[in-house]
Design a protein around this nucleic acid. Sequence first.
DNA 1: CGGCATCCCTGCTGATACTG
DNA 2: CAGTATCAGCAGGGATGCCG
Lengths: 142, 142
Amino acid sequence: MEEGTLTALGYCGGTEDYSARQWDGREGCEVRQILDRVADKWSLLVIALLDRRGLRFTELKREIDGISQRMLTVTLRQLERDGLISRTVHPVVPPRVDYALTPLGETLHATIQSLVMWTETHQDEIAAARADYDQRAELAPA
Amino acid sequence: MEEGTLTALGYCGGTEDYSARQWDGREGCEVRQILDRVADKWSLLVIALLDRRGLRFTELKREIDGISQRMLTVTLRQLERDGLISRTVHPVVPPRVDYALTPLGETLHATIQSLVMWTETHQDEIAAARADYDQRAELAPA
DNA sequence: CGGCATCCCTGCTGATACTG
DNA sequence: CAGTATCAGCAGGGATGCCG
């Protein structure tokens, strides 16, 4: 089998020159679906946080301010289902559960890390652009 | 509910060894906010689509299946405000508006492209992981 | 064609309470 | 500690209708 993609893939051509290719917009599209999951608000933070060492449920909850217990649980379950993180239950009295990146998860981690770093690097430019835009908006409606 | 800290940065340390650093979890955090915007379901697709050549409103709408006119408009406005895309209005009879990446937007495009490619590359592994997880879930509840 | 305003409803999300 | 279950809210997002 070569690049014989079926119907619902993100791209519909060869393997290079992605830029010229068309997006499959179908909502059910596999790539779109995964992208939504992976680019999810909380998933992103969990993956970014889980670098090398595993973390306990509580540790994650503490690090990610603003996440509710429910959303953390849901997010972790999804990531586990997608094979991105592993869940290890230690049969001790105060229950202890560790979450860590799987090899697959680590490959994603790298990509996400670059996104995070991009954000860090350009936050000032964005802030400036916003200020600029907002100011212009105030002057325009005259 | 009295968490109104003003220090709102993503990281709280130096500039290296991001992995060991702590996330600022504060919701108002600048980085968190931008990350949410940038990792947004629709923003991601728009940025990924806008490679080099600009696209018209309608073209974007056609490419991104499932997006409503409203969400496309909203998304484009946000991206414009953030200085990631430019909006060019051509004063012709059937109105024509082109959207294109700004230099800043292009830097983001590269990062997002790698995320998209990651998804493409690993979609099979994820699908497999899901099937595996689901099957296990059926056997477990005894 | 492009885009804004309005209405409206779904479902995501957080808060709360209960178990192993 | 690490969840699950339940409920209520509110914002995200769709549908429609009207302008430039």
